[in-house]
């Protein structure tokens, strides 16, 4: 069975609302991306230098990043030689295969890192980090909702004591999803807020504590040190914690996302990425390069503004979302 058929079968079997949601969220993305790949394939009769040049542009326009794209193109060229591919139509398959491969990397490593590390017994602490305006607080609200529907008790720590209105924003989310919010006044030490929250979470035997932090640009040394301190407090108060450090990335961000991932990883040992705002026209292709270079997996994607618009990341679905037209176009033939 070809890779495509397998992939398609796997997804149609699941045929659930999640895939639908993914498709909806990615429609805009897919329209332009897959449309252009189709366009490209239709226009070319031969897989030649020009074909690759245009493919390169399509991938770059998805923010995949120049270096990754160059490497990918080189690999594709070798593959074309090896399999003796001349018909551009066959390329659809090879391209998606390679893309999924980059996402998934080593299968074993992938399986391990895909799920959220929630403790069976005792408190799980999840720390959220990222630059300004990526959607940390909103993501916390959505994840709290998700965990609540899974039957967990959730508490929120208002660790963004800097931005005006941030504490109130988290409080609104707390009310919406029914989770207690631990806070201090604006301008107080975020590490102290998190310390308080941990004590409260322990006392009330909460399952999961989600810690918000203020957005900070990764080149601000002092602010990164502050974040390290917050993490140290968590480590000291709960052995084995934080169980996850999630870096929230805006899908519209370009190559700077790599710098964000690198520096936040150095400071807080990021365990996963939440890719937000994927319902726009941006593709967030940089996660490919981040996964490839830094081995940080994407754990969730934000596909809209509603409470249940946070979905676990599934590379196959992601690629399927990008290439759905190609799949369908192919099976009709």
């Amino acid at each position: 069975m070809s890779f495509f058929k397998k992939l398609k079968e796997k997804i149609t079997q699941q045929a659930d609302s999640v895939t639908e949601k993914f498709k909806q969220g990615l429609t805009k993305t897919r329209d332009s991306f897959a449309g252009r790949v189709n366009d490209l394939i239709a226009r070319y009769r031969k897989v030649d230098e020009e074909f690759f040049e245009e493919l390169e542009e399509i991938l770059i326009s998805a923010d995949v990043g120049v270096t990754t794209v160059m490497d990918l193109i080189d690999e594709l060229k070798m593959e074309v030689k090896r399999r003796n591919i001349q018909d551009p139509k066959e390329m659809q398959e090879v391209i998606s295969e390679k893309l999924v491969e980059i996402y998934r990397g080593d299968d074993e490593e992938y399986e391990k890192s895909a799920a959220l590390n929630i403790q069976k017994d005792g408190l799980t602490v999840i720390l959220f980090v990222g630059v300004n305006g990526v959607g940390k607080t909103t993501t916390i609200g959505k994840l709290a909702h998700k965990l609540k529907t899974e039957g967990k008790t959730v508490m929120l720590a208002a660790g963004d004591t800097f931005r005006a209105g941030a504490i109130e924003q988290l409080e609104v989310w707390g009310e919406r999803v029914g989770a207690e919010v631990i806070k201090q006044s604006a301008g107080s030490d975020p590490a102290a807020v998190v310390y308080d929250a941990i004590q409260a979470a322990k006392a009330r035997r909460v399952d999961v504590l989600l810690c918000d932090t203020a957005g900070r640009l990764q080149n601000k040394v002092n602010l990164m040190k502050e974040l390290e301190k917050v993490k140290r407090v968590i480590e000291r108060e709960v052995p084995g914690a934080p169980h996850e450090v999630l870096l929230v990335l805006d899908a519209t961000t370009g190559q700077n996302a790599m710098s964000q991932a690198k520096i936040f990883k150095e400071a807080t040992n990021v365990t996963g990425i939440v890719l937000t705002k994927l319902d726009g026209t941006a593709k967030g292709g940089i996660v490919l390069a981040i996964r490839n270079e830094l081995h940080i997996p994407v754990k969730f994607v934000g596909l809209g503004e509603k409470m249940d618009d946070l979905q676990p990341f599934d590379p196959e679905k992601y690629v399927y979302g990008l290439f759905a037209d190609l799949f369908e176009g192919k099976s009709e033939q």
């Binding site: 998805a62 630059v131 996302a257 026209t281």
Partner: peptide, 12 residues
């Protein structure tokens, strides 16, 4: 506009 915006800046 966020200065870190990638290729999508043109569409936006």
């Amino acid at each position: 506009v966020d200065a870190m915006t990638g290729q999508d800046a043109v569409n936006v």
